[in-house]
Write a protein that binds this DNA or RNA. Sequence first.
DNA 1: AGCGCCTCAATTGCATGCAGTTTGAGAGCC
DNA 2: GGCTCTCAAACTGCATGCAATTGAGGCGCT
Lengths: 252, 252
Amino acid sequence: MAPRAASKIAESSDKVGVICRALRRAIIEQALEPGAKLPEDSLGERFGVSRTIARHALGQLAAEGLVELRRNRIAVVATPSWQEARDAFDIRIELERLVVRQLAGKLTKSQIVELNTHVDAEDRARDGSDAVSIRLATEFHILLANMTNSPILVRYVSEVAYRCCLTLSLYSRPHSSECAINEHRAIIAALVKGDEAKVMSLMHSHLDSVANRALVAPAPQRGRDLLDILAPYADEADSARVVKLPKVVRAR
Amino acid sequence: MAPRAASKIAESSDKVGVICRALRRAIIEQALEPGAKLPEDSLGERFGVSRTIARHALGQLAAEGLVELRRNRIAVVATPSWQEARDAFDIRIELERLVVRQLAGKLTKSQIVELNTHVDAEDRARDGSDAVSIRLATEFHILLANMTNSPILVRYVSEVAYRCCLTLSLYSRPHSSECAINEHRAIIAALVKGDEAKVMSLMHSHLDSVANRALVAPAPQRGRDLLDILAPYADEADSARVVKLPKVVRAR
DNA sequence: AGCGCCTCAATTGCATGCAGTTTGAGAGCC
DNA sequence: GGCTCTCAAACTGCATGCAATTGAGGCGCT
């Protein structure tokens, strides 16, 4: 059996999976902002596949709620309403409480190392772009979920975390992630200590504070060329033939 | 006809949506048992569409965890492990507690009527096939979720409820749904009364008891003894159905 | 008879082509 | 100037065709 496979959300084949991962990442790093257009042609061209595959990938992302698919219209990055954002965080809180409940006192040494290493990386990224900080913060939570060895839990936590990330692009002010990092460290400590109630309450207040800090007021949007945005993500697609990019697609 | 749209999980176009709904229903009514093969050709033929569409539908269902997609192999109805089943129920409990928490004391008169009408239908179906009873019981929970007006919550509750249904096919003994109906009535009553804590605890114990009734044996069947699993059903139902297992979907 | 190899029908993976729908840019009108 | 009407380009919806992979049955060998 292939141990690598089936780790992430639900990628059928690999080409589709590559596109999904690339777009997901572009979205949570806010390279693709909510409302950005995602024409099948352009995606296919950029990733060196046919529209069929791009279309399939969009279908998957739509099922995850990251993309909005309107019949006969160009797909766009989802633009959740404020209420949906709040709902997503509420769900996330419950799911992640479940995660830490299952994990409290059960982490192996190597898992603890892995978590600390990740938070160190978050620390180092503090001076970098907000986008990377946000992505790392999200990945910390997904890393935790992974340690439960519950594929279903992993999937739901990942999905809802990505969605929350997406809403951050919409409603959050410039991110100050310093405190979040400390909260991550506190969570690790409580997990190691094995105090179930404590770590659940820590996770709850952590996510709640992130939500409250984030969901304050709407933010402006600006347009950018889709193909340019995807450029850094495309070569991850095993450098399939990078074809010419004749068209300019802009999201205004 | 547009009024039906956008209510369910995440159907992109309509043809794909039709196939997804049909398969979902076939799966939760156990017409399609876990492991049943789902060749793209046959599906396309059966629904009068091309393989492309059937394929897309399978992709969606795979994202929901109802179908397993293996590269270059025929897709099959998912066969969750016992542990996954337990995890699904744990997640479901948390999600549905969230549902009733949001709903307690906030139901409109027409919603109360709708719920009671549904439970009445469950009652009438008690003499019918187990499959229909199970489907109706599941739909009660989805109906509740719908009333929260939170698309995200609706989606997750629906998905996880379908998954739980699927595991019931695998691990449950012949279903006795009578008590479940009473529990549904009790939940409605508590919702109307507006007692948040009470209704959350009711929902918790309701789902927990369903899970415990269903998931009794700690993974008795590891091997491929499908016939062993089905043995208890053999004398009760016509044994022809058991024999016929390998090919459930065929191309006319 | 048992065991392994080999071949071929069944099936998936993917691209492409055609038809129908939406878009938006510009001409014409008020 | 601003508004609407019109039409071609852009884009999606879907089917079909071709290559690649699989696994199931047949054949020969021991």
